[in-house]
Design a protein around this nucleic acid. Structure first.
Lengths: 167, 167, 167, 167
DNA sequence: TTTT
DNA sequence: TTTT
């Protein structure tokens, strides 16, 4: 059948990278996607969408994003359920990510990091999307043995996906 | 049936805004969408996708984007054909845009414009997509007869759509 | 930002149509979307995705679908939470439907209904999706007080959407 | 960046399967996707969208679809250009298909084939989408050395994709 | 005719 | 060049 999702939003926290028992990498994160229109109360609101990414893409994702990062993803909706400690069935809906794209410029990312995660000084305002200063991934001293910054020396957007990366 | 498209890319030129005989606004533009992977020759390439946007959204689009702007859109593919002056049938495929979202920060947008459209000085490199040079809170003298900056005073992304805008 | 979903699946039950206090129609339903690939155990599985549709489209949807209907939809993911009677916070993820398309032929739909919802008699097998048993040209006596069958007299697929319907 | 398309429509002709010089399978086809709404003249219209599918998925696609088949696909828009014999540059926009899903029941497919491609006898009308009788793929006597019908014995939709098929 |  |  067909099950396809495309989202652009910001990470609500640093992604969590784990490894399954069988040694497969998984990263989980939540995307805050601002809604298009304000409600009657004039609030714009956002949807907070749980996402899961697997394998090499998970590692790449974890290496190049952090709280506040602006990313685009495409994937599919997956549902599952489990019984919690109270014996209650909990239903979970997540987006399984196939590909992602980092949509924030180095400039914005660094400014966002500088500002402690929010990318615009008070009284100053961003145009559309992106801005802020996260904490992680700033690469303050180009730590060796760190994942290479794939963006160094490139003015291009870089899309990153499953297993197929040059880095 | 189903016909849905989502794109994130950059305008190859300023959008062209026109009015139909019956007074409806239309804007046309081409989005350059970088491909995800490089080919055998190591070239990354891009797709150049013709887009059309109608009515009030067309006016908003034309007011807030220009060559190089990073935008996200959703819409549908439309095909049509016409006979050119040589009597040959020409087939056209365009994306009819339902909604758009400006994905570039004010910082990046202004830096990009400062740089004459290309957003990163040589030797300096952008992170993923988007770029620019911050002159935050600009709009130095709120040029009269200019479209109001809908982004002033907001740190959030702003999505803009058909007829439903607060400005 | 961008938040777009496209699904094709079958209703797990008849849709539930309600009216809000302010008189707006809403229908809710769950789509079962078969997964693309089987897991290690050879089970194919499906995702069960909660959907919500509003206004006139909700009424149309409720009139022309039932348990087992094959439908395509496009919309966006919405998240919300509430506290249940046990004082526990429950997180809900739903798809807000913008448009839908009925993807089942009259033949299949009638056969499905004949069969009590499941569309293929044992020993008989469906091709891909959808099923049913032809009793073409039915609608034997155009049941009064019934929603008009928008498909009568048309060999075309019919897509149905918000407020814009000819019926 | 992001470039994602989802379509549901019918093949305007049998797909064309070819092999590149380096031995890779490609199939091309056009999807007719009925538009959602009628225009001022009451015509509904359709978009005719060129699609390309590669490798094993191409072979599967060619084996299980024919003129009139109802299919869902997801993929991305690709643009290219070439100079024709008259030395004129021709611009081409195609959808590169990642996955497809056969959305027509065996019943409808066979009825469509019986009817010579159009799936409903005159004066009789289809419900929403699908119907008709194509010519190919009917498998009248289970021709040996033919691709196995992946749908035999299954009441479920079957989605087919790149390289990952059980048949 | 293409963006960064 | 178009499907149902």
């Amino acid at each position: 059948m067909i099950n396809r999702v495309v989202l652009v939003g910001r990470l609500t926290r640093d992604p969590e990278l784990r490894t399954t028992g069988s040694g497969i990498s998984v990263a989980t994160f939540t995307l805050a996607v601002d809604r298009q229109f304000s409600n009657a109360q004039g609030e714009r609101g956002a949807d907070f969408i749980s996402c899961v990414i697997w394998r090499k893409a998970a590692e790449n994702f974890a290496n190049f994003t952090s709280k506040g990062s602006l990313v685009g993803i495409d994937g599919r909706i997956q549902t599952r359920s489990y019984d919690n400690k109270d014996g209650q069935r909990v239903y979970v809906t997540e987006v399984i990510v196939d590909n992602f794209s980092l949509l924030e410029s180095r400039r914005d990312r660094e400014a966002r990091i500088q500002n402690g995660g929010y990318n615009q000084p008070a009284g100053n305002n961003s145009f559309p999307a992106s801005n802020g200063t996260p904490i992680a991934n700033s690469n303050p001293a180009p730590a060796p043995a760190q994942p290479q910054d794939p963006f160094a020396g490139s003015g291009d957007a870089i899309d990153i996906s499953d297993d197929d990366l040059p880095f």
